[in-house]
Design a protein around this nucleic acid. Structure first.
Length: 287
DNA sequence: AGATGATCCTGTATGC
DNA sequence: TGCATACAGGATCATC
């Protein structure tokens, strides 16, 4: 679920409330989600007493740096949530409606209590999300080291995209989803970018021309920037670092709109299965 | 190299 | 209503 815009929204909302805060206690409720260290006691002991500094995003990974150079790394995968709950709410009784924080407590897996009140809560319905405690840059999870450039940064150039596409027989959508080519695009924004660029998702990468590659690069940047500006896309699970849903859902042009008219030409949006996942596109606009 | 399917999980929607 | 099946935003691994 959380792709680049969602993780970026979490980063932006968490940084101001976490920076400078010290960990008072760590409650591991589901050891399952710990990638390193895997032992819940060791994880809790290692994190307790340390102080949060800056929050950084790399692709879909969130890095909560500690002021001693270590980092708490989080990947939310499909349904994970990382939400700060302020002291007032944390102290409130477990009352019905407003339990939006990190999902209902049934799926709450880790609670980091902060000195001075408030807590950071990690929840995940499907339990695919993972947390790592790293000693420093060289100790970050393997997946981070393999990430390609950030599509909103300077490293993602047209030359680089063309190189990734050149001669490739896999689909152009598979290239967009490859985190080693560019970091942060998932199913939603891959479909949206391909629509904006007018390229069929199943087109072999090697058959994408130079002009189309340029359009695709611009389209990827456009959809990601738009989505970041609106706080990401929420269907059911995603919430930002303060528990709020994203506002980009109503802007989506093809994702989850199969059967509805294409915003450009009115042709019904199609849905096919590509590489084991759904791909939505306009059969008239995208060739 | 790249496609495919299984896997990790639970919730929801759909069909019978 | 009950039950079975398919599917959902991600990433990794085995197999062909």
């Amino acid at each position: 679920m959380p792709e680049l815009p969602e993780v970026e929204s979490i980063r932006r909302t968490l940084e101001p409330v976490l920076a400078g805060r010290r960990v008072a206690a760590v409650d591991v409720r589901s050891p399952h989600c710990l990638a390193a260290p895997r032992d819940p006691g060791a994880f809790a002991r290692a994190l307790t007493g340390r102080r949060f500094a800056r929050c950084e995003r790399r692709g879909k990974y969130l890095l909560l740096w500690l002021d001693d150079g270590g980092a708490l790394v989080v990947h939310l995968r499909m349904t994970g949530r990382l939400v700060y709950r302020p002291p007032a709410a944390a102290g409130a009784a477990a009352g019905g409606a407003g339990a939006a924080a990190a999902g209902d407590d049934r799926h709450l897996h880790l609670v980091i209590r902060l000195e001075g009140g408030g807590e950071l809560r990690f929840g995940d319905v499907r339990k695919f999300g993972r947390l790592w405690l790293a000693a420093g840059e060289g100790d970050l999870p393997e997946g981070i080291r393999r990430l390609g450039p950030d599509p909103l940064g300077d490293g993602f150039t047209l030359a680089r995209l063309e190189r990734a596409l050149a001669g490739g027989r896999r689909s152009v959508k598979a290239v967009l989803l490859d985190q080693e080519v560019l970091a942060g695009v998932g199913n939603i924004y891959a479909d949206e970018a391909l629509f904006l660029a007018g390229i069929h998702p199943a087109r072999p990468a090697g058959a994408v021309g130079a002009a189309e590659a340029a359009r695709l690069l611009a389209a990827v940047r456009q959809v990601l920037e738009e989505a970041v500006a609106r706080g990401g896309t929420t269907f059911s699970d995603y919430r930002d670092g303060l528990g709020r849903p994203g506002g980009y859902g109503s802007t989506l042009r093809v994702y989850r709109r199969e059967g509805q008219p294409c915003p450009r030409c009115g042709t019904p949006i199609a849905k096919v299965r590509l590489g084991g996942r759904a791909a939505r596109f306009c059969p008239a606009c995208q060739r």
